[in-house]
Design a protein around this nucleic acid. Structure first.
Length: 357
DNA sequence: AATGCGTGGTT
DNA sequence: TAACCAAGCAT
């Protein structure tokens, strides 16, 4: 380990990286320009959105959130549903719930001011090891070493680390920390983090990395061995189970559609759904019992949606509510014209499209 | 440590 | 097309 540490220092890796970053840094909406002071609220918001999510996907959501909630005080004061609706389509909805929790905690207990230390940030909802280090480094220029998927890949290749994921993460963290410490005189931990992420996103890509453009092309141990495309190594993935279910488009005379809000925890927590059954045992609709009395029209085809851990195929049935129909508890009628302002996850938007074309 | 948790783009 | 992958977190 100490040998690799020395290698890092000897190859002046940080200088090469920062030189490259100064010439090629990407302009991103949440990124401060050179000389500007980063806004912790914006750094935090972007980091939460960027968890497991690409820059291209995040951009419009980030802009929308800043428009709707310009400060952490605006966000903390917002109704839950406004935040869930603004987040709809971005996925991993626990992020939105924790975002709101975190904003309210900070506003209530700390006057809306973010703590600057990695350890204090780590205690906040939705902020884990990566995000705590990223905010500390990027927003406050603390000597923190965030390790995301990019940095994990970049350093695994630079140092030819063959440990498979997920164990690799801890190993990379120690080297990333040494890297920042070795560069202490430059005092640019935030730029080091962003430079390594930019490098991973644009050059040291998972497939077909563009080594010819890499500032570390002469230093990369993996490239030297010709194994750069095989790193990082990972355990084989499990096959994705298939689930099938039925979703009901139940319309009343006003043209409104029956919906309900899912429980806060678990899959699609806090988001709006059409009644359904057969694929998510905990959320089988109580509507099932009332349906035999109603004439149903089965729509041709099906809606297919792929979640992280299973593939879902939904048959869609269309029904008209009879005159004396009583909606089950916790259900509400929503008119399709209000769908844009409804917290509908993508799988439900696919169902809507399937029905309305 | 392993699993649950979205979605859309790329290959 | 099916598989892979993306600035991870909570439990």
């Amino acid at each position: 380990m100490s040998e690799r540490k020395n290698n890092l220092a000897e190859m002046h890796a940080a200088q090469k990286l920062l030189g490259w970053y100064d010439r090629h840094r990407r302009v991103l909406p949440w990124r401060a320009l050179p000389g500007e002071t980063p806004d912790p609220y914006r750094v935090w918001l972007s980091e939460i959105m960027l968890q497991q999510t690409t820059v291209v996907t995040v951009k419009p959501y980030y802009e929308k959130f800043l428009q709707l909630f310009p400060t952490i005080h605006d966000l903390a004061a917002a109704p839950d549903d406004a935040v869930m609706t603004a987040w709809a389509g971005l996925g991993y909805y626990s992020r939105a719930r924790n975002l709101l929790k975190c904003a309210r905690t900070l506003v209530t207990a700390h006057d809306g001011v973010f703590p600057q230390s990695e350890s204090a940030l780590l205690t906040l909802p939705g902020i884990g090891p990566y995000t705590a280090a990223a905010i500390a480094a990027i927003a406050f220029n603390q000597q923190a070493a965030p390790v995301d998927g990019n940095i994990e890949r970049v350093l695994a290749r630079l140092l030819a680390l063959t440990t498979p994921l997920p164990k690799l993460k801890a190993e990379v963290k120690t080297y990333a920390t040494q890297f920042v410490e070795a560069d202490a005189p430059n005092n640019r931990p935030g730029d080091i983090a962003q430079a390594m992420m930019d490098l991973g996103a644009t050059i040291c890509t998972p497939k077909r990395p563009n080594c010819l453009l890499c500032p570390w092309q002469e230093d990369c141990a993996a490239k030297l061995q010709g194994i750069e495309e095989t790193l990082p190594r990972r355990a084989p993935k499990k096959p994705k189970p298939e689930r099938r279910g039925t979703v009901w488009w139940l319309e009343n005379k006003k043209g409104e559609v029956l919906m309900y809000r899912r429980p806060e925890k678990g899959l699609l927590g806090g988001m709006m759904m059409l009644p359904s059954a057969g694929w998510d045992a905990d959320n089988d609709s109580t509507l099932t019992h009332a349906l035999p009395d109603i004439e149903t029209q089965s729509l041709p085809g099906a809606v297919v949606h792929v979640f992280t851990h299973f593939r879902l195929t939904l048959k869609v049935e269309r029904l008209t509510a009879p005159p004396r129909f009583k909606p089950p508890a916790a259900h509400i009628w929503v008119h399709p014209k209000d769908f844009p302002d409804t917290a509908l996850p993508s799988v439900m938007r696919k169902v809507v499209t399937h029905v309305l074309g």
